[in-house]
Design a protein around this nucleic acid. Structure first.
Lengths: 120, 120
DNA sequence: TCCCTTGTACTATCTGCAATAGTACAATTA
DNA sequence: TAATTGTACTATTGCAGATAGTACAAGGGA
C-alpha cells in the first residue's frame, strides 16, 4: 500500500506531487522494480481525487520510464530504474547548487550552510 | 535603474518574482535605504506588464516593510533594511533545507551533499 | 491656474491550468 | 458473465494570475 500525502497548500499540482512521491519511493526502495502499484481508479479513490488526475501522473511517470502500464493487467514499476534515479539525482543536485549560490550571494558562509545541513 | 528579469516559464507568479528581486537587491545592497524606486506605472511599462500586477508586488513589499509608498511622492526603500536581510536569509535557508530533504528523500547521503557543496 | 505624475481603489473581464465529471471501449481475469 | 484494467475522449468547473479601464485626491512644476 502506497502512502501518498497530498498538500493542498503547496503550489505544486496534485498530479506532480504524485509523480514526485512515487519517484521518491522508487529511489529509496520502498517501491521495487516490477512491483505492481495501485490502479488508476483505486489510487484516485484512496486519495479522494479524480481518476483523470492520477492518469495524468501515471502518464508522466510512464514517459519518464519509471513505470509501465499494461492494459487490463495494471501498472508496474519498471524493471530498470537505475538510470531514472541517476538523472533525477543530478537534477536535484543542480538545484542544490543553485540554492547554495543564492545563499552565498546573500553573504552566508559555507560553514553556516554546513551547520544548517547537519542540524536535522 | 532597476533590472528585473521576468521568467514566464517559472511557475512563480510575476508579482512574486518582482517581490523576490527587489528584496534580493535590498539584501545585497544594490538598492539602498531611502532610495526611490520606479513608480508603479513606470515599472509596469518597463516590464511590459499591467500596473495592477506591480501594485500587487508593491503592496506585499510594503507589508513586509521593505518599501514605503507616499501618495503623490512615489515609492522608496525603507530606512530600516537590516531586518529585511535577516528575513530573506531565513527564507533562503528554509529553501535550502527543503532541497536537502528532497535529496535525502532520493537516497543521497549527507556526506555526498557536503562534498557537492565544497567542490564549488 | 493648469497639467502631469503620484499612489490608491475599485470593477469587470480574460486566460490558462488544474481538477472534476461523465461516458465509452477493448481486453483480461476471476 | 461480471468485474477490473488501461485508455481515450469531451465538457465543465474552479481558481488564481493577469489584464483593462476608470476614477479620485494630492502634490509639484511651469
Amino acid at each position: 500500500m502506497i502512502l501518498i500525502n497530498l498538500d493542498y497548500q503547496d503550489r505544486t499540482p496534485i498530479y506532480e506531487q504524485i509523480v514526485n512521491t512515487i519517484e521518491k519511493y522508487v529511489a529509496v526502495g520502498i517501491l521495487k522494480p516490477k512491483e505492481q502499484i495501485p490502479s488508476i481508479r483505486e489510487l484516485a479513490t484512496t486519495l479522494g481525487i479524480n481518476p483523470n488526475t492520477v492518469k495524468k501522473a501515471y502518464d508522466i511517470l510512464e514517459n519518464k520510464k519509471v513505470i509501465t502500464s499494461f492494459s487490463t493487467k495494471g501498472t508496474y514499476i519498471s524493471d530498470q530504474t537505475d538510470k531514472v534515479l541517476e538523472n533525477r539525482k543530478k537534477e536535484e543536485i543542480k538545484n542544490l547548487k543553485k540554492q547554495i549560490e543564492v545563499l552565498k550571494g546573500l553573504g552566508v558562509t559555507e560553514q553556516e550552510i554546513i551547520k544548517v545541513m547537519q542540524e536535522k
